[in-house]
Design a protein around this nucleic acid. Sequence first.
DNA 1: CAGTGGTCTAGACCACTCT
DNA 2: GAGTGGTCTAGACCACTGG
Lengths: 233, 233
Amino acid sequence: MPLYFQLSQQLEAAIEHGALTPGSLLGNEIELAARLGLSRPTVRQAIQSLVDKGLLVRRRGVGTQVVHSQVKRPLELSSLYDDLEAAGQRPATTVLVNTVVPASTEVAAALGLPEGSDVHRVERLRLAHGEPMAYLTNFLPPGLLDLDTAQLEATGLYRLMRSAGITLHSARQSIGARGATAAEAERLAETEGAPLLTMQRTTFDDTGRAVEFGDHIYRPTRYSFEFQLLVRP
Amino acid sequence: MPLYFQLSQQLEAAIEHGALTPGSLLGNEIELAARLGLSRPTVRQAIQSLVDKGLLVRRRGVGTQVVHSQVKRPLELSSLYDDLEAAGQRPATTVLVNTVVPASTEVAAALGLPEGSDVHRVERLRLAHGEPMAYLTNFLPPGLLDLDTAQLEATGLYRLMRSAGITLHSARQSIGARGATAAEAERLAETEGAPLLTMQRTTFDDTGRAVEFGDHIYRPTRYSFEFQLLVRP
DNA sequence: CAGTGGTCTAGACCACTCT
DNA sequence: GAGTGGTCTAGACCACTGG
């Protein structure tokens, strides 16, 4: 385990734990380095990682301070399944469609494939405490992943992708709202025209290849998107 | 201008410009440093900043590659005004309320002030091409900013805050949806019960102080939240 | 095995902030 | 003017990847 990482973890623990109180100065880097028997660049790297996380603020001529307030973590490429599980909501999934279809214009454009070529199509109803929460439609390029229905019902899609050795790298998201169609209303136990939260997302791996396109609808009384974000310095 | 910054800008320009094509290797760091007459840490710092932006990917034992696809930029703390202006939509603002009120429980909690203490309340109708697009309600702690109605109609709130010397640092956002009330429908030229996109946001400066709380509604036929995000390595 | 990025050191000078 | 972080150098060894 790298030294700078060990140090940043210690500092983070100290902040979390209250040993370093908000607003307090961290002490100058050179002395900190001497005290720890590390070089200054190593100490700086540790501090920088916490600045990137939003836990510390540096000011030239002043020092390094612990941020006052509740910055928890920046937006992550989150999985609805993981979000629900973290919130103690006991997610459940019903796979309604798991098939191969020709790519529509929209799907082909999102995945960077020729129109009409084969793609996997998966439709899942996501429940929490037995109540429908979201209806998830995903398209994946062929040959990337074994889309086993049992596995899809037991865990989230992102977790399946990661365990298949796919390194998720970035995603392009769009969040909007619209009224439910009759079919959507029935699936989500809502009424026709009821407000729905919508999200489209294309996910890319670290080579820049599109690995997933999703078109999802959420019941806004049951789910909202919450996230923390940091201003780029 | 720092050397590493100059280099990262040159590299970014080369990527944008097509001189460095997606998937191409950047060449090893030590040789690059020698060729440019820089030290390796400086070159690494330049490369790292582009990795953070999502333009490059490093793999040990392999090299540094240009990412294949269209990663533009991660989510920023964006201003609706700036978003609209960047999209060529000619934003206009009508200030409907600009006053001081006692803080409600919700507002007091968001801003970290005592309940009932004075806060600024600003309500603005934001239009694009003359059509209502959003209704923005903001609360600000007292004494932070001169809330001049003319200035609020000429630019965005964030720009006003930045020019007042406030360093925006982070924000906590929540995006949801619900049906419009009769009053909201009238303001936005919608019908009662029409789906609306909602966003609550608390913004913090670099000392961790809450500097703004906003409770906004958007017409989903006219606006959606679009952003790119990177997976934290 | 050769080549790559990942980590680390020990120094140096500069720019900024505050008193 | 004293103290801080910001930048930069010139080396070194290690861990991982690929042929």
